[in-house]
Design a protein around this nucleic acid. Structure first.
Lengths: 212, 212
DNA sequence: TACACTCTGCGTACGTTGTACCCTATGCGT
DNA sequence: ACGCATAGGGTACAACGTACGCAGAGTGTA
C-alpha cells in the first residue's frame, strides 16, 4: 500500500464520485477504500469541503487550455468541447464547479480563455460578457444535460417519459408531450452543446463587427 | 397556531432556505420553527427529498407563464426576466431546479414555453434545440451568477478579489486580473442575462429564416 | 548512543442529521 | 357509547463530519 498523499486521496475520491455519485461520497467510505482510518484523511485535506474543492480543481487540471490559433472561435469551440466531455466524464463535477471557489488549475484555465478573447481583438465589453456567456454555457448546459441524462435518479428515461405520456389527458400539455416524444424518438439532434455555443460565438463576432 | 399542512411546511421551508441557505435546512430546525415535533412533518411530506421537490415546484408556481403575443422573442424575454428574478429571489432554487424531477407547476411552465416557440412558427428542430437553449440559459446562467454573487461563502467579493489581485506575480494571469478588475470597477455592465438570451433568440430567429 | 521533535495514522467520542416505529389524543360516523 | 381514522409526539438508530489525544516511525542533534 503506497503512502497516503493528497493526490492519492483526491484520485480515489474522484473515482468514487464517478462510480457512486458525489452524494454517496463520505469520508469513512473513502478511507475504507484507501485502507486507512477515517481520521487519517485529515492529515492531508483540511476537511471534506476543501477536499471537494481539490477534486474539482483536479478535473480542471485535466483540461487542455485553449490554444491561440488564427480563428478564435475555432479555438473556443475546441477547448469547450473537450471541457464539456471532461465534465460529462465526471458527472458530479459540473455541479460542484458552479458552487465552489476556483483553485489554481481553474484559475489558469480562466486566464487562458480570457487571453483568447483578448487576442481575438474583441472590445472590452464583449470580452467581459463573452467570457461569462461562454463559461456559463459550458457549466450550465452540462449541469442541465446531466440531470436529464440520468432521468434524475438512475431511472431509465424512456420509462419515466413513457409513464408521463400515458398519464396525460387528451390534448393537455400537448407541446410538452411533443417535446418528450422528440427526445424518445432518439433521432440525432446533433451537437446541441455546440449549437448553442455557436449562437453565442457568432453573436459575439457579429456584435464586435458593428458599432458598440 | 394554524393546523400543519403541506403548504405551510413548504412556505416555511422556502422562507428558511431563503434566509439561511438550503444546506442549513434540516427537518428538525424546520419543525422547530413551525412549533411541532420533527416527525410531524412526515405526515405531510414523504421525506426531505420530496419536500425539496415541492419547494422548487412552489417557486415555479409563482412564475408567470409566457403570454402569447405577436413578438415571440419579446414574450420569451419577458417571461425569462421574471423567472430569472424569481430564481435570484430564492437563491437556492436554481441549484435544486437543475437537480430535481419537475413537478406540476414546472411542467406547466415548460409546456407554455414550448407553445410560444411552436406558435412562433419555428421549425421543429429549432423548437427542440431552442427550448433547451433557453431553459439551460435561464437556470445555468442564474446558478453561475449566484455563485459569484456571494463570493462563495458569504464573503465580500471585493475583499476576496482584492486578496487575489495582491497575490499575483507581475504579469502572471494578466487577463484574469483585468477581468477581476472589471468586476470590481462596478461600472454598469448592463443586463448580461438578457444579452446572452438575445444572442440565443436572435440566433434562432436567423436560423429559422434560412434553409435548414 | 540517547534524546527530542515532527509527522503520519488510529481510536474514541460528540453532536447533528434523516427517518423508522410506536404511542397518544382528538374528532367523527354510527 | 363505541370504534376508527387521522394528526402529532417521543424515542431510537445508523450514518455522518470531525475534534481530540495517543502511538509509532523517522530524522536531526548532542
Amino acid at each position: 500500500m503506497p503512502a497516503l498523499t493528497r493526490d492519492r486521496i483526491l484520485a480515489e475520491a474522484i473515482a468514487f464520485a464517478d462510480a457512486e455519485g458525489v452524494e454517496a461520497l463520505s469520508m469513512r467510505k473513502l478511507s475504507e477504500r484507501l485502507g486507512v482510518g477515517a481520521m487519517s484523511l485529515y492529515r492531508h485535506v483540511a476537511n471534506k469541503d476543501e477536499m471537494l474543492d481539490g477534486m474539482v480543481d483536479a478535473v480542471c487540471a485535466e483540461l487542455q487550455p485553449p490554444r491561440i490559433v488564427d480563428d478564435w472561435r475555432e479555438a473556443i469551440r475546441t477547448t469547450s468541447a473537450e471541457a464539456h466531455a471532461a465534465l460529462l466524464a465526471h458527472p458530479w463535477a459540473a455541479g460542484e464547479w458552479s458552487r465552489r471557489r476556483p483553485g489554481p488549475a481553474r484559475v489558469a484555465y480562466m486566464d487562458a480563455l480570457l487571453r483568447v478573447l483578448t487576442e481575438a481583438g474583441l472590445r472590452p465589453d464583449l470580452i467581459y460578457r463573452g467570457y461569462h456567456a461562454i463559461t456559463m454555457h459550458l457549466v450550465g448546459f452540462t449541469i442541465q444535460e446531466l440531470s436529464y441524462r440520468n432521468g434524475l435518479a438512475g431511472q431509465d428515461l424512456a420509462v419515466v417519459a413513457g409513464q408521463f405520456l400515458d398519464g396525460l389527458d387528451d390534448g393537455h400539455l400537448r407541446h410538452l408531450a411533443d417535446h418528450v416524444r422528440a427526445h424518445l424518438d432518439g433521432e440525432d439532434h446533433g451537437d446541441e452543446f455546440g449549437f448553442v455555443l455557436d449562437l453565442i460565438l457568432d453573436g459575439l463576432h457579429r456584435a464586435n463587427s458593428t458599432a458598440g
